[in-house]
Amino acid sequence: MDILNPAFWVFVGVVAGIYGLLALALYVQFSMAGLPNFGHVAFMALAAYTMALLVIRADVALVWAGVAGIAAAVALGLLLGIPSVRLRANYLAIATVAGSEMIRYLSTNLNLTGGAVGSVGMLGPTHFATYTNAWQPFIESITAALRHAVGSVATTDFSMFCLVWVTLGLLLMLFRRLERSPWGRVMKAIREDEEAAASLGKHVEAYKLQALVLGGIVGGLAGILWALEIGVFSPDDFQPTLTFYAYLILILGGMNRVWAIPVGAVLFGVLYSGTRFLSFFPLSLVDTGERAYLRLLIVGLVLVLLMAVRPQGMFGKREELLLEK
């Protein structure tokens, strides 16, 4: 694809925004409450599957199916979180990995979820199942309205781009406000030393559960937007590595700075989509099939190097990170 084609960059923007949402969901749990979720992608997958299944198999209206999808993601967060909030952090990491792997295995192997084929196979191999019938007219109407405002740049992807980034922007503002509130102060204290917080009368478990729920809501939202953007999905769209892309975005942005998430998301979007669709030297040396591996290799390398050399990200203060707990 042409690097100067605006349609390409709009798509990159959508991808970046959705990963930004996933990173924000992770931020609530990890950066704010200190809960390391290593299987965050399961929230996205479960929400997307729940929504698609309800629309396709139970004829539920898209809006309610979406709400149910988010509710399912929250339920998963609580299911994995409730036994783990009392445990040391590393156990939660393992529990979340196990939970997300379970969702992946089930979605790949059940007939209900369309198996490896994914959403199009939800009514069996002979039907072509789709969940976007109600979505298309909605997004088209937004596109039409936008076309009045900005002209021919407005495509469906452009509408999606606006939708995703407005959502992300509003949520970022909300979380920034939350972070500076007394609520955010308690969260921060729990992340730093939960016994100290408890000794001052703060109900640590209740706050951790709130973080799990919030992370589930935002993660589920990311999954639903992603499903609506790509139109059909399969288990491959929710690879476990997605969670670590979100970590990478957080690290790019410095882990503890919420406003750095969009910057990290854009950088990641360019890095990721750039290596996927563009073909210039030296990328042209690697053939298209192998480029996926190269892309993941680069992601891994950046993750290692950033964690090793610049754990505070682009904006963080190193001294802050190195203050002993």
Binding site: F38, N90, A93, F244, V302, L303
Partner: peptide, 11 residues
């Protein structure tokens, strides 16, 4: 450290 090993595994 675990995140670093995740990246290492990807590489």
């Amino acid at each position: 450290l675990s995140l670093i090993t995740v990246g290492l595994g990807l590489v």
